[in-house]
């Protein structure tokens, strides 16, 4: 059967233009810019600086490490949560309630934690009840990882929930009938079958975690520097676009590697902004 033309070619021009101008051109431009120095001359100096000075490499390793920690904590909290939500009666409603916080602006949630974690904030007041002197919580590595994990949880729960939903009950029943313990059923049946959801979740948490520069500024107190923070710094503060683009290229490469590791299944949870 021949395929039908849905519309004139003219209708496709805007979409084609979008791909050309806003998908291909910007990626090309950021790669091109990474080979330019401050005077717009072609140079490899940016990459040389990146690989020779230990600071940039350390920053990259640190950024990957923070993103890894955030992803692990998010996964540890989200998997049981998704599993238990799936067992509930009104699961659709509860799932909606899980996603609802993602519609509250990210910056407002970060702002809330400025109040919660401050020197005289709620957490320190609570600790004070046990006679613990006020701690510096805000502007520490801990607060950064905590808030980032908090923000990412719904994006992890959603894909895992969907993959649990896809697992047929008959597999679980079969496994039980064949004498598997609950743990065996989980580790040999449920976990492997829900792995695509976990991968999708890891993908949609890890990649944004590399670039959460607003959290490093508001919550991390500039102590945590992620790839995103470095890019923002180079583009908007020091105006060294060449170096910023170089770090951008590194971030793109990191992203491609992560996507290859986690398979090409699309995360339907969306991203964090």
């Amino acid at each position: 059967m021949s395929r039908r033309q849905y519309a004139n070619w003219g209708y496709y021009i805007p979409y084609g233009l979008w791909i050309g101008l806003f998908v291909i051109a910007p990626v090309g431009l950021i790669i091109y810019q990474s080979f330019l120095n401050l005077n717009h001359h072609f140079t490899l100096a940016n990459y040389e600086t990146y690989f020779k000075s230990g600071t940039y490499l350390m920053m990259t390793v640190n950024s990957l490490w923070w993103a890894f920690l955030i992803t692990v904590f998010t996964l540890l909290i989200s998997y049981p949560a998704a599993y238990y939500i799936h067992q509930l009666k009104h699961r659709q409603l509860w799932l909606l309630l899980t996603i609802l916080p993602t519609w509250i602006n990210l910056l407002l949630k970060a702002y809330a934690f400025i109040g919660i974690f401050s020197q005289s904030g709620v957490v320190n007041q609570f600790l004070g009840l046990f006679g613990i002197a006020p701690q510096q919580i805000l502007f520490t590595n801990f607060s950064f990882v905590f808030v980032a994990t908090y923000i990412q949880i719904p994006f992890m729960i959603l894909p895992i929930y969907n993959s649990i939903d896809d697992v047929s009950d008959s597999y679980i029943n079969a496994s039980r009938d064949l004498g598997a313990t609950s743990w065996q059923t989980f580790s040999k049946v449920i976990w492997p079958l829900t792995l695509p959801g976990v991968k999708a979740g890891v993908q949609s948490v890890f990649i944004p975690s590399l670039s959460l520069f607003m959290l490093t500024r508001l919550i991390g107190g500039n102590k945590v520097i992620t790839l995103g923070t470095a890019i923002e710094e180079h583009f908007l503060t020091t105006m060294n676009w060449g170096m910023g683009s170089t770090i951008g290229v590194v971030l793109i490469i990191a992203m491609v590697i992560i996507m290859m590791l986690t398979g090409d299944r699309q995360a339907d949870g969306g991203r964090v902004r």
Binding site: I30, Q203, I207, P208, S211, G248, I252, M255, G270, R271
Partner: peptide
């Protein structure tokens, strides 16, 4: 553009 980090 969906998978790219916002900073990029």
């Amino acid at each position: 553009l969906i998978v790219s980090p916002d900073v990029i």
